[in-house]
Amino acid sequence: MHSPGYSFRETSRDGNARTGLLVTPHGEVETPTFMPVGTQGSVKTLSPTEVAATGARIVLGNTYHLWIRPGPDIIARAGGLHKFASWPHVMLTDSGGFQAFSLADRRTMTEDGFVFRSHIDGSRLALSPEVAMEVQGKIGADIAMQLDVCPPGMSARPELERACATTTRWARRCLAAKRPDQALFGIVQGGTDVALRKAHAEELAAMPFDGLALGGFSVGEPIERMHEVLGEVAPTLDRARPHYLMGVGTPSDLVRAIGTGVDMFDCVLPTRNARNGQALTQRGRIVIKQARYKEDFTPLDPTCSCPACTGGYTRAYLRHLYLAGEILVLRLITEHNLHLYGRLVREAREAIAAGRYASFARAWLGSDGDEP
């Protein structure tokens, strides 16, 4: 089932929550794990060394953006994205399918794939399953994703059925076109229709994918419904393969999804929110520009080991930097937020191994609102 050099095994279990070990040519990843998003081959504001210091051992690169600039041939001549970006650990690339969803006004879709207008210069780009595999092959990530169709949240069943059927046909084409030394994950669609999700997961599980991803969540459906569907679908996925929930989410989202058996996550939230002046803590969000922090000479979180919290940087100072437009504050809060996500998945792994995931989850749920 697994591509050469890749393996996955479950190492402990507590209810549906589980820990695992994902082995790749660029190292091992303990799961559950969070993958910081490096859209352009870089996690915004941080160096690869700083990203690794948060505990991250796998990052995500964006196929669409890297395809457009600098181009896969340049990345290949550089020795692949690992060398180009100086990231020595594991790397995953998405397929470009989500950009087809998010750039809906700039693309058309046919049986062969998507036709885009570049957001940079308007040039015409045709993204087929074969092109998605060729581009990801040249980028050289450890794990590639199949090209899929991501329907908007709360789409009608006929649209969901079409998305699943096309994704399945494209799955076969991606498997036929992939680089032999690259792992490939299939992407389960179906919106919030549980029966459709389960049926599509069974179709993809019958194919030789190295992992199964859940796509098409957090795209407009009520978040409570997402959690309900995850609770019914994720525990039924093939346990011999890693389970990846794409593009989700908040700390509470991760805690709930880990409880259903999800192993891998990515989301721009911790880095994007940092650049908007939001620091995340287990007690809730800190919106650093607020006046209540003007004379608050405490760290963001006294229990956090990140450079912002251990380096003597107070909330008052960070607020001053943010209002003054200083870049340092964006770096410090980004590091802080990624350290929080790293701590969350590390403590989740420890709690699962110790058989106390339920109490761990109770302590984290509700961490997404503003700090009291």
Rank of each mutant, 00 (worst) to 15 (best):
G355F: 12
G122W: 13
V149I: 14
G277L: 07
T168I: 13
L330Y: 11
I333A: 01
L22G: 00
A100C: 13
I258H: 04
L344C: 03
H26V: 05
F209E: 03
P251Y: 07
F8A: 01
K198A: 13
V287Y: 12
C309R: 03
P32R: 01
D73N: 13
I288L: 02
L21C: 11
N16C: 15
R285C: 09
S12E: 10
L21H: 03
T298A: 15
S12H: 13
V188N: 06
I143S: 00
P151T: 11
G366W: 12
I75V: 15
P88H: 10
A234R: 05
R272V: 08
M145S: 01
T39R: 04
R162P: 01
K83P: 05
A100Y: 08
C309I: 06
K83E: 13
P36Q: 05
I187S: 00
S47D: 11
R331A: 01
V194N: 05
G284F: 11
M109A: 14
A171H: 04
C304E: 04
D112W: 07
G231D: 09
P208R: 12
A363H: 13
R173W: 08
G215P: 02
P299G: 06
E50T: 09
V90D: 00
L254M: 09
L103D: 02
G186N: 07
S155F: 06
T250P: 04
D94M: 06
L340V: 11
D105V: 12
K289H: 12
V287G: 01
V229E: 03
R169P: 02
Y322L: 13
G122A: 11
H200Y: 07
R157M: 12
T93D: 00
G71L: 11
T11V: 14
T49Q: 15
G61E: 02
T260Y: 15
I74W: 10
T260L: 08
L338R: 03
P151Y: 09
L125M: 13
G311F: 10
G38H: 06
K83L: 14
E350Q: 15
S218E: 09
Y64P: 00
T250Q: 09
F8S: 01
P70D: 06
R283M: 10
V29D: 01
I74M: 13
R157E: 11
G216H: 09
S252N: 05
S47K: 14
P25S: 06
R256K: 12
L22P: 00
D73R: 15
E224Y: 11
D210V: 01
A183E: 02
G15A: 12
G277C: 08
S86N: 15
G38P: 04
R331F: 04
I58P: 00
T19V: 09
A199F: 07
D296M: 04
N276T: 08
A316F: 08
H82C: 03
L60E: 01
R117V: 05
F116N: 02
P251S: 08
P242M: 04
D121R: 12
I120L: 15
G71V: 11
G15Q: 06
L230E: 02
M35H: 02
L184R: 01
F297Y: 14
